[in-house]
């Protein structure tokens, strides 16, 4: 329906846009193989895999990975139940209370991460809890709960309430109804929420920066590597993370398509 000229212009724009989108990824990948002391693609000094070897041998990196996984799992364990319970609550109240609670639950998504980190740090310090990964976990949970809540709520709102009533009517207790009817119905949403929560936590930098105490997570490790001795090791790590993410994205998309088809 658009004129041919517009279509051509839009096509060109899209190509440029996609180049812009992916240029950094290419640069990152190529720099990881450049045999140059500094992370760059020009000048090209020849192929090498030594940055990967360096990375593999880097104990600090492994420590950081361990910490990130630990925090990520802790966040999943805390945020998924809390977000789910909050969504269940929100789903069955109406009116003013609901709007108020909803506002409070969504607000953390709009607060800059460093402010979440700072407020968490100060609050716990004032009641005598020193900073460390546990505070990073708590700080991250405060907004990751919001994501979980929104995902679960979206699913709950499509659930037929009479299923719960039927279970109760057949003699199930409230807990049995939750376990046998509601949770199985939410299964996919909960799994997705858990994966997303883990990713969000793994990616987090701003909140962690202020709450971590002396501990290092993957993002903190990368940032400190970039600011101090810049080496292509970072690019090597980047490539590894890119591979994992792209694989995850592709699997997720395919799975979503499959479940949508059912």
């Amino acid at each position: 329906m658009e004129s041919r000229l517009t279509r051509i212009i839009v096509k060109i724009y899209l190509i440029v846009f996609l180049l812009y989108l992916f240029a950094p990824l290419f640069v990152m990948v190529i720099a990881a193989f450049n045999d140059s002391k500094f992370p760059t693609v020009m000048p090209w000094k020849g192929w090498t895999t030594r940055w990967f070897e360096d990375l593999w041998a880097d104990d600090r990196m492994w420590g950081a990975v361990g910490n990130s996984i630990l925090v990520g799992l802790a966040v999943v364990i805390i945020a998924v139940p809390i977000g789910t319970l909050a969504a269940l609550l929100l789903d069955s109240i109406r009116g003013r209370t609901r709007s108020f609670l909803y506002g409070l639950m969504v607000a953390p998504l709009l607060v800059p991460g460093i402010i979440i980190g700072i407020s968490t740090l100060i609050f716990w310090n004032r009641i005598g809890v020193p900073s460390g990964l546990h505070l990073s976990t708590v700080g991250q949970c405060s907004f990751i709960c919001s994501y979980v809540m929104l995902m679960v709520l979206a699913r709950l709102q499509r659930m037929d309430r009479s299923l719960e009533e039927a279970a109760l009517d057949l003699g199930a207790t409230h807990l049995q109804t939750l376990r046998l009817i509601v949770l199985p119905y939410l299964r996919t949403a909960l799994l997705t929420a858990a994966v997303l929560a883990f990713f969000q936590s793994f990616e987090n930098f701003n909140t962690t920066l202020f709450t971590r105490g002396g501990a290092t997570t993957v993002t903190i490790f990368i940032a400190s590597r970039i600011r101090t001795g810049v080496t292509p090791e970072v690019n090597a790590l980047g490539l590894v993370l890119i591979t994992i993410t792209v694989a995850a994205a592709v699997i997720y998309t395919i799975r979503k398509k499959n479940t949508a088809a059912v």
Partner: peptide
């Protein structure tokens, strides 16, 4: 989906 720091560094 790729870390903001890495993209920025690129």
């Amino acid at each position: 989906w790729i870390n903001e720091i890495l993209r920025t560094f690129a």
